[in-house]
Design a protein around this nucleic acid. Structure first.
Lengths: 347, 347
DNA sequence: ATGAAAGCGCTAACAC
DNA sequence: GTGTTAGCGCTTTCAT
C-alpha cells in the first residue's frame, strides 16, 4: 500500500504539503502542486479512508436506510437508492446500506461508531421510533416521507396532497363528475405511512372544490379483492367514470376486472395511476399517470444532506411537485361523437 | 465521544485489556471481564470504526455492487440486497452500496482506499470488465452470475440450466409434448448476461432428452411484441401446449394475449414462469413458477465472503438449485374428461 | 508557501 | 492474566 509519506518522499515535500495539495485547503505554489500531483499519479496513491476519517472526523459516508418488509413498490425504491448513490458520489461520498430492521439501534450504532456522517431515511412513518433518535444524534439527516412531529427535521417527499388533487383536476377537466380513489390496503393506512392519507386528502378536497363526487376505498393486493372492491364500488356509485389507483400491484388486475365487467378503458371508464412510469406504460391501454419522481427526490435528499454537512441551512420540508403524464387511459366524459370540425370560438 | 481510554480508566485497566475483552482475542479473568463490560455499558462505549479499521487493517465493510440500468427485475435485486445486508450484520459487517456505473474504477477506488474488505458483485456478465480487476485486487469477492473465465473466482448463481430443464420436465411429466420458451429481449442475450442462455440450454437439452418439441423465442417488453411473438409462435407451431416465460415484465401481457387469442390457461395452454413468487401469485390464474431464490443466494454470497475473509476455502462455483412451485397455470395435457374416480393401481 | 510534529482511537506485538 | 507502547495513515495546528 502506498501512503502519503511515499508520495511526499517521491515529490520531495512534507506529508502535510501532499495533504494540502489534495484537499486544496491552503495555497500551494503551482510548481509544488504539479510535482505532488505527478507523484500521486506515478505511485497510484489513494488516501486511506480510515486514516482520513480518523484524523478528520469525517467518514465521507452517508447511511441510506431502506425499508425491509413493506408494501411500498420496489422499483421506485431502487430508483431512489440509485439516485442517492449517484448523487453522493458527485460529492465524493459513499453510501452505507442499512435495512430498517435494525431499527433505532442501528442508527445509533453507525452514528456513534463514526461509520457515517449523515442519514437518509426512507419510508418514515407518522410515528416513527427512529425520529426521536435522529433528533438526538449529532448527525444531520434527511427523511423521505414525513412524521407527525417534523419540527427541526429535514423532510423531503412527493407532494401527495397535490398528487391527489392533480388527479381530480385532470379528470374533472375532462368532464368527469363521479370519481373514485382505489387506495392502498387498509394495513398501509393503519401503518400511518402518511402518503396514502395525504393523497386521499388532496383527492377529497379537490373533489369538493370542483363539486364532483369523490369516493375512496382501500384495496388489497389479490385479484379477488380487486374484483370485489370494484364491483361494490360500481354498485354503490354506478355513475363513476373516473378511477384513480394508488396501488401498484393491483393495476394489472384492475384492468382485467374492468374488462371482465365490460367497462372499456377509456371509453366507459377513465383510469389514472399514481405509479412509476414504466408500470403505467406497460399496461393496455397505457395509463395516464402521476409519477413518483424517485430520482429527483433521491438527488434532493443528498443535496440537502451535503448542504447540512457544510453548515448551510436547508428548508425543513421540501415537497416535490407531482407531474401528470396523460396517456391513453383517460379521456373526455360524454364526448360528442362527431366528425365535424369543432367550431372555432371567436373573440 | 467516549473512547477506549475512558472505558479503561473507568474500569481501572489498560486500554489493551478493554480491547481484548471486546475482541475475545486473549483470555481475561472473569472478574476483569465483568468490570470492563460494566464500564462499557455504563459509558455507552462504541469503538470508533475508523480507528479500529486503521489499526486492524479491516473495515468490516463489504461492498455490494448493484446493476444501475438493467433489464433484470428489480424486486429480486431488492430481496437479494436485503439478504446481503442482513447476513452481513450477523457477522458484524456493514454493507457499502456501489452502483455498476462506477465500473472497474469504482472497485479499485474502494479497495485501494481500504473502505471495504470484500466485494459482492451482482449481475456479472460473460465478459465483464470488472472481472480482471477483481482478480487483481487483493480483496476477496463473490460474483452473482458467472463470467466466461471464472477460474480462480468465487461465483454463485441460480442453476439456470437446471431451471430450464425443470420446466421441461414438469410439463413433459404432465403429458405436454410441444413446448416453447418465451425468453428475455434479444438485447439481454446479446449483453451475454449468461443466465438467459443457460436457461435456454437446459430447456433445449431437456426437451431433446424427453423427446418433446422445445422451441425458443426472445420477446421484448411491449404488449405488441408479446402479441406478435405469441401469434407467430402459435402459427409456426400450432401444437404447442406448454409455455415457459423467463421475462417478468411480459407475464401480465402474455396472459392477456392468450386470453385474447382464445387460449384458456391452463385448459388449452399450460404456463410456467421463471420469476419471483409474488409476481406468479398475483396473476390470474396463479402461475406455476420456478423461483429465483434471491434471499438464499444473497445469504450464501455473504457466507462465502466471510469464509474467505477468515481464510477458509470456498467452492469456486455454487449453483443454487431451482425449486418449482406448481400452481393453477399448469395441468395435464389431454386429460380424460371424466367424473369417475381414478382406478387405483395395485402393485 | 512550506515543514515539523502532535494527535485522531484503536490493535497487537512485546513485556512481565 | 494484564500493562506498556509503538504504530496504523492521515489532518491540522503551530512554526517559520
Amino acid at each position: 500500500m502506498v501512503t502519503i509519506a511515499d508520495v511526499a518522499r517521491h515529490a520531495g515535500v512534507a506529508t502535510s504539503t501532499v495533504s494540502y495539495v489534495l484537499s486544496g485547503k491552503r495555497t500551494i505554489s503551482p510548481d509544488t502542486r504539479d510535482r505532488v500531483q505527478r507523484s500521486v499519479r506515478a505511485l497510484g496513491y489513494r488516501p486511506n479512508a480510515s486514516a482520513r476519517a480518523l484524523a478528520s472526523q469525517r467518514s465521507n459516508v452517508l447511511a441510506l436506510v431502506i425499508p425491509l418488509r413493506t408494501g411500498m413498490h420496489v422499483p421506485v425504491m431502487m430508483q431512489f437508492a440509485t439516485a442517492v448513490v449517484t448523487t453522493a458520489r458527485r460529492f465524493d461520498h459513499d453510501v452505507l446500506l442499512l435495512t430498517a430492521d435494525e431499527g433505532p439501534e442501528g442508527l445509533r450504532r453507525v452514528a456513534q461508531s463514526s461509520l457515517v456522517d449523515a442519514f437518509v431515511v426512507m419510508d418514515v412513518e407518522l410515528n416513527d421510533e427512529r425520529v426521536p433518535v435522529l433528533r438526538d444524534l449529532p448527525l444531520p439527516s434527511v427523511l423521505i416521507g414525513y412524521p407527525a412531529e417534523a419540527a427541526g427535521l429535514t423532510c423531503i417527499d412527493l407532494d401527495f396532497v397535490a398528487a391527489g388533487a392533480l388527479c381530480v383536476d385532470h379528470l374533472a377537466d375532462l368532464g368527469h363528475d363521479s370519481l373514485a380513489l382505489l387506495g392502498t390496503p387498509s394495513a398501509v393506512y393503519e401503518r400511518q405511512t402518511g402518503f396514502a392519507q395525504r393523497t386521499l386528502t388532496g383527492f377529497t378536497e379537490a373533489a369538493a372544490r370542483r363539486g364532483v363526487l369523490g369516493v375512496e376505498t382501500p384495496c388489497e393486493h389479490t385479484f379477488d379483492a380487486v374484483l370485489q372492491t370494484v364491483q361494490q364500488l360500481l354498485h354503490d356509485h354506478p355513475g363513476i367514470t373516473g378511477l384513480v389507483v394508488q396501488n401498484e400491484p393491483i393495476i394489472g388486475p384492475l384492468l382485467d376486472v374492468l374488462r371482465r365487467l365490460g367497462r372499456r378503458v377509456p371509453e366507459d371508464m377513465s383510469v389514472l395511476a399514481i405509479s412509476a412510469d414504466d408500470v403505467a406504460e406497460r399496461q393496455v391501454p397505457q395509463l395516464s399517470s402521476v409519477t413518483i419522481p424517485a430520482e429527483e427526490i433521491g438527488e434532493q435528499a443528498v443535496l440537502s444532506l451535503i448542504a447540512k454537512l457544510e453548515g448551510s441551512p436547508v428548508p425543513e420540508l421540501t415537497l416535490v411537485p407531482p407531474t401528470l403524464t396523460p396517456r391513453a387511459s383517460s379521456t373526455a366524459h360524454n364526448p360528442q361523437p362527431t366528425n365535424h370540425p369543432k367550431p372555432v370560438r371567436g373573440d
